[in-house]
């Protein structure tokens, strides 16, 4: 993985695969350059035993193959910069979900660029148009935000967020917000 946004795309898919109806993805960049990524979902969660194994590359829920690289790669990306990865999860009925927090020191030479985060968010929404995504990117200069529940309210029933016209709108909506905070 050459971009953090690719790790986000990969790992956030675990949330939708866990049957989450709500996935919150947030990025927070502090003045000092510490970047905190958090992905919180209300999916089925994991047992304590499963949780212990998820950052082991030789652990996977996949049946086709014996390796699972998604979380180990994210952990490595965070640790290389001096940051880290913490995951908490509950599989109790009614309160299940998973919360992932990864920290990165963006001053580190080993910190990957964020890359095309807009594309990542669009693809996540297109891949699971029925899921509610809340995305925020908060930086010292400003904030980018998108909540798909608001879009769904306008679109009404019957028009999927995966429709190309809607996807195009989401892409431009996010790009415009990014341009604005970059020009400040």
């Amino acid at each position: 993985m050459k971009e953090l946004s690719l790790n986000i795309l990969d790992v956030a898919k675990n949330s939708t695969a866990a049957g989450a109806s709500l996935v919150k993805i947030s990025l927070d960049l502090s003045e000092s350059g510490m970047l905190t990524l958090s992905i919180v979902d209300n999916g089925c969660g994991m047992s304590e035993e499963t949780l212990l194994g998820v950052t082991d590359p030789f652990y996977t829920t996949r049946k086709t193959r014996k390796v699972g690289m998604g979380l180990p790669l994210l952990k490595m990306a965070a640790e290389m910069t001096g940051g880290g990865l913490t995951i908490t999860s509950s599989d109790k009925a009614g309160e299940s979900g998973t919360s992932l927090v990864a920290t990165f020191d963006t001053n580190s030479i080993d910190c990957m660029p964020l890359g095309d985060i807009v594309s990542t968010i669009c693809i996540l929404i297109a891949g699971s148009p029925e899921v509610d995504f809340v995305f925020t990117d908060t930086r010292p200069k400003g904030r980018v935000a998108l909540a798909t529940s608001e879009l769904r309210e306008v679109l009404g029933e019957g028009i999927s967020l995966a429709e190309l016209e809607v996807q195009q709108w989401i892409k431009e909506y996010l790009e415009e917000q990014y341009r604005e905070i970059e020009n400040l």
């Binding site: 993985m1 990969d10 690289m69 998604g70 594309s119 693809i123 891949g127 190309l164």
Partner: peptide, 28 residues
Amino acid sequence: GMATCGIAAGARPVLNAFVDGVNANGLN
């Protein structure tokens, strides 16, 4: 294919190219 293997190998720009191409050619 958009699992870890696909994404790491460059599936995201491929997906975008298909979406853009389908759109541009009016194949929606």
